[in-house]
Structure formats: C-alpha cells, structure tokens
Write a protein that binds this DNA or RNA. Structure first.
Lengths: 189, 189
DNA sequence: GTCTATATCGCGATAGAC
DNA sequence: GTCTATCGCGATATAGAC
C-alpha cells in the first residue's frame, strides 16, 4: 500500500529544503528524486510556494492550539512549566520533527511567506504569554529564551557526545531553569 | 572625503544580504543602489562570493583571536565569565554589529562557504572551551547556550519594549546565569 | 496523472570600448 | 573605473498530447 504522490513530494521537498535551503532547491531536483518530470509537480501543487504552504500550515495549527490552551489558563509558574513541556512535545511530534528544523533554517528565505509571518507572530505571542510583565529585563529575556532553548540543543552540542534522548532531557532542564526568576530556584521549593 | 567604492559595495551588500538573504539579493540590486552597472562590481570583486568573503573574514579573525586568548588561560569560572564578556564586546563592536546579524541569517544559504565553515568550527571550539567536561548534560547544554544567548535578545523581545542598552545588559546577565552549574548561584558567592 | 516541448525570465559572469 | 552588449545557463511555469 504505497503512499500517494502528493505526500511523497512533501517528504522529498521537506528534506531538500532543510538540507540545502529553500532557494537552493529546484523543482527539477525534487522531480528527479521522485522519478518524474517537473511538469508533474504542477499537477499536485500550483507552484513552489504552495509546497511550502502545505508543509508549514500543520505547524501553524499546532502553535495556535497551544496559544488557545495557554490563554485558557491563569498565568502561574506551573502554567509556564507546563507550556514548556507541551511545546517540547509538539516540536518532537513526528509530524513536526522535520518541519521545525526546516523552519529554523529558511527564516530569511521565507520572510515574506504569509504562513511564516503568522508562525513568527504566534511565537512572539507565546513568548509574551510565558513572561511576567513585572519581571526584571533579565528575567524577561531569560523566560523568552526558554522556548528557543528547546530548539538549540540539536545544533549546539558536538556530534555523538550525548544521545538524542540525553540532549532532549538536558534542553528541557535548561528551559525550566530559564523560566525561574533569578531570586530563587526550583530545587528550593 | 568620500568613501571609496569598494567600501560602499560592502555596506550595501551587507544590508541587502541581511534584509533579503544572500540568494535573494542579485548583483543588479546592489549595483542599482550604488548607481552603477553590474559590470562595475566585477572590477572591485571577482564574483558574488568574493563580496561575502570580504565581509566575513574580519569576523573570523576576531573569533580566532578570542580562541587564542581563551586557550592561554586556565579553565576557571572566572575565565568563562570573562569569555562571555569579551564575546559580547566583539559582537557589539561597530565593525561586527551588522556582520553578526548577517551570519545569524544566511547560515543555510552559505553552508558551503569556506570561511563560514571555519567560523562555525571556531564557534564550536569556543563552546567546547566554555563547558566543563565533567558537568551534567544539562549544565553542558546551558553553558554552550551562553554565547548564543548574546545573539538572541535582539530578535527575542518585542520591538520598543526595552531599549537596546537594556536588552544588552539583560542578555549579558542571562549568559552569566547560563554559565553557572545548577548547584549554586553567583548571588550566593 | 504524467509526458514533451517551450515560453519567459533573471541570474552570474565576461569581452572589449571608452 | 565604468560602460554597453551579450553569453550561457537554469530557474519557474504553462500548453497541450497521451
């Protein structure tokens, strides 16, 4: 039971866009890997941009669900820790694993893409929800950095020094630390 | 006493490469802003790649000087704090202010550029120097994140909420916190 | 649903006059 | 040091047969 062509185009495009960048990847390359001609791609997607849109809209949906959830809850330290946990899960979900990496790179190339603009807006809203308005500037920067720390581990550490699972656990721990105001620590609670 | 053309090309290219991305910026655009034709650019630089090289080699020099310094010193907490301080200064130096931003974006587009590869290697070496081999995974990720925290503030915080100076001070403070092992805090020293 | 063939464009780069 | 003119290429995208 073979995947349909549309899905295979998305998989190949996502991989090449991530490895080489969006602009550096041509439709010819995608078609070649798929074993068809360029023209065939235009049956499934109306243009190159449309392939990207089909990829990133799933990620936008996830972020908007996360925002909806966070706004239904009171702004407490517990909520912040749970948001970090949920965000980490959503980044690691199979359908988003590759898309998150694709988005990390290609920010500049896709700066005008409507869906990308929305994703950036939603990320800013999430960092607003996670930070305390009355906190010191350092605490605010620290809390805003918490979500991004969950992306950083993968390219921060030397290859093979720590396992994927160790890196994930470590990033989560660092993100929790970044949430805490400088005055006290979780270990003292 | 007017700037020479070569310098003006570098300034315009740096701005456009940063705003739009390297691949999305054509030599035609650069020439148009300068008020000359494409062909004139080829008198000053042998190709598009050469313009980038002329920009990023200054940054590579700075990183290598920083590495040389750090390796001449013992691995102590004081050294780590001083490294963060020096790195922050080097990012803020006028000649590097724009180049650092240009490098943050365009990582993917220039992934094969020889100078960029060296810069990435030097950054990895710096994060190696700044982290303690015996520390826990979380502490290691945290310490590696310290240098990158100095880049994050500019695009992390909402526009106009904090001044540039406040953001810089806050990032520095966050970087210092990331250096500390989770067992104790600087405020207790 | 995929093909061949082609239109159209803009790119990086070069030659040679001035 | 800058110009005009042009080359060669590969890109996105489309038309129409099968």
């Amino acid at each position: 039971m073979r995947e349909d062509t549309r899905t295979r185009i998305q998989e190949i495009a996502l991989r090449l866009f991530t490895e080489q960048g969006y602009e550096a990847t041509s439709l010819r390359e995608i078609a070649e890997e798929l074993g068809v001609t360029k023209a065939a791609l235009y049956y499934h997607f109306k243009n190159k941009d449309d392939i990207v849109a089909s990829l990133v809209e799933m990620r936008l949906d996830d972020l908007e669900k996360l925002l909806e959830w966070v706004r239904s809850r009171p702004k407490t330290p517990q909520m912040r820790r749970e948001l970090v946990e949920r965000y980490a899960e959503s980044v690691r979900a199979t359908r988003n694993l590759g898309i998150a990496r694709f988005l990390e790179r290609n920010q500049t190339a896709l700066r005008d893409h409507p869906t990308l603009i929305k994703i950036r807006e939603r990320m800013m809203e999430l960092t607003t929800e996670i930070s305390e308005p009355g906190a010191t500037p350092a605490d605010r920067v620290s809390q805003a950095l918490a979500l991004f720390a969950l992306h950083a581990g993968k390219w921060l550490m030397k290859e093979g020094e720590l396992s994927d699972e160790e890196i994930h656990k470590a990033c989560l721990e660092v993100a929790y630390r970044l949430l805490e105001p400088s005055g006290f620590r979780a270990s003292e609670l």
